[in-house]
Design a protein around this nucleic acid. Sequence first.
DNA 1: TGCTAATCGAGACGGTACGTCAGGTCTTTAG
DNA 2: CTAAAGACCTGACGTACCGTCTCGATTAGCA
Lengths: 196, 196, 196, 196
Amino acid sequence: MPSPDPARRNENARRAVLDATLDLLQEVPYPRITIEGIASRAGVGKQTIYRWWASKAAVLFDAFLLLSARDGSDTPQLPDTGDLQADLTLVLRATVVELNDPRLSDPMRALATELAQDESLAEAYHRQLDAPLREAKRQRLREAQEAGQLADDLDLDVAIDIIWGPILNRWLQRSGPLSDEYVDALLRTALRGMRP
Amino acid sequence: MPSPDPARRNENARRAVLDATLDLLQEVPYPRITIEGIASRAGVGKQTIYRWWASKAAVLFDAFLLLSARDGSDTPQLPDTGDLQADLTLVLRATVVELNDPRLSDPMRALATELAQDESLAEAYHRQLDAPLREAKRQRLREAQEAGQLADDLDLDVAIDIIWGPILNRWLQRSGPLSDEYVDALLRTALRGMRP
Amino acid sequence: MPSPDPARRNENARRAVLDATLDLLQEVPYPRITIEGIASRAGVGKQTIYRWWASKAAVLFDAFLLLSARDGSDTPQLPDTGDLQADLTLVLRATVVELNDPRLSDPMRALATELAQDESLAEAYHRQLDAPLREAKRQRLREAQEAGQLADDLDLDVAIDIIWGPILNRWLQRSGPLSDEYVDALLRTALRGMRP
Amino acid sequence: MPSPDPARRNENARRAVLDATLDLLQEVPYPRITIEGIASRAGVGKQTIYRWWASKAAVLFDAFLLLSARDGSDTPQLPDTGDLQADLTLVLRATVVELNDPRLSDPMRALATELAQDESLAEAYHRQLDAPLREAKRQRLREAQEAGQLADDLDLDVAIDIIWGPILNRWLQRSGPLSDEYVDALLRTALRGMRP
DNA sequence: TGCTAATCGAGACGGTACGTCAGGTCTTTAG
DNA sequence: CTAAAGACCTGACGTACCGTCTCGATTAGCA
């Protein structure tokens, strides 16, 4: 039972599957999306999906890779005007807009729930999708640290968690609305703990 | 088509369903648990489940209510030795132990993913399960605030999010290990931003 | 588990069940009639049906008894003008009209299929419903025999089967249309074999 | 929603279903046979049955086609020794043996009750199963007619009904035992009416 | 530039679970 | 104790998808 030869893979079919998945995510709640539905929407045989992807979650994941490659640059970067709080306010407010937009929020939720259930998928996610983003955040904080705006002994990964964790948690668990005021209050308190 | 009369509900059947659900959660990953499986394990007809619960998630939710009522007291409370950081360290370390224990972690993950997908269930969760816990946290912080250990203008809900959000997010997204060191580093930075 | 005491039986409930059954037979094909449907239509508890009847077929049977008692006299009789062929033509044409009328044909079909499947019900049918009718037929033939219109050695039960069997069979198996012409042709040939 | 492509039909599955049906008919009263039971006995998915057959009755019908194709020749024929009464006695006694044998009688009863309830099935039955048999009967009678043993003006279809109808009716309605004596008495009277 | 082997769309297949319906039993409340 | 009501366990219904499989009909890489 040899695994399929990637060289012979039909790129059209691959794109059709991922596009169909993204389309369906706009129309149907993720749990009700089926492999058969994706195949039929993509005009593709079911076997073509089973040949190249291990699970519905794997398709979803690749669809996200495609989406990210589409609108994000390859090496994401946070703005750096020198004013950390202002820059983060900008970034987090933009994030909040995205998280409040069903077109982005629904697919993200789908991926998030798959990550929560599937350890190996979570690993792939953190390596391929989250890592570059996290590195950009870390880089921005490092620059602030080097500029003396953050404490020298601050653990930057903890800092990232403190800044982004509350928002992501509030979003995913629906524990409250995500507003600009919330972002401001969060950043005010969070950053206060990080200054020298 | 009248909805069933709660007065005639068989408490034995209700308990059997919830117990079976909790049992199965120890054995089978939540997505592979089925209504049929619960019914058969509970020695109950499928219709009895469909009569009283709207979905598998609703059963899961009630099972959690039962579980919480079982080992948590009715009005949870955080320890108060006067030393906020020490108390929170204790609490968070205990939380981390729970989150690292599959017996608790797996069911919680199941509920968390359902909350992420189902708005009305999330509402019920926050009202019935999360609210009392959150109130306990708020109460503990308020006492610290009144004792002058926290800034007067601190938004306690934001504070709660900053303290617990990073941990829950890291746990659910599997973005990194949950260790005592992480708890300590998190609390150190988080609380520093909240002091007067 | 004593069987119920017939003396305490509620006649209203009994009639309501049988009437509901007859009503439903006008509206729904017999195989899709359910005990629950009868009970609900009759405004009667399911248990009341299960207490007094052994099966849906038993209810059907009693409904027929009621129906027969209603429009047939207690001791049915065939016309006797002295002209056997004319009398039988009259009777069979009337029978054919009934068998072509869905309002009568459908319930009869229902009973017929139950008889074919359930030996004890068939026995009850022949004893309670068919016997008087058959006796009337036998009586009419006997009179013809005594009047010298039929052979002395003719087995009257065979004669009855030859006269009515083809019609009933054609009706139940739908092997052809039931018309007056068919009745006439049938009677002509059948009776020719029975004359002295 | 196109109907399935017969070219892709799996003959093994088809045979397994029909064989399983015939097997079950030997073991379980027809009304208690279920599609699930057939599927499981045949080692076949339920959907495979629902894909190719419209109802349990349709499966039963095809099983009968198979059975008939098995032991009956393609073009059945009645014996012709020149002595019509002797030939028919032979045939009807054989029929009576079959009708008294549960292995044949039970499935026939099942089909007969379905025919009584389902007009389109009855049509298919008469076209595919009954017609050739009836033609053979008609042919045998025609030859007797041409040999001057039957009246020239005899309607052969009525004659067939008079000969076979009483037996089938007595069998299906269980109105009396089917014995050789009954066959003889029946034939004696019936044929007497048909001679020139 | 054909050969040939893998991929492709299609969809039948053996299964599992779905959510519904009804069967027959049991319990509750009222008369 | 009967009866209406209806919850209960059971099991079958007919449907939807699962993941595997087979079927021609393209391809795409090698010979």
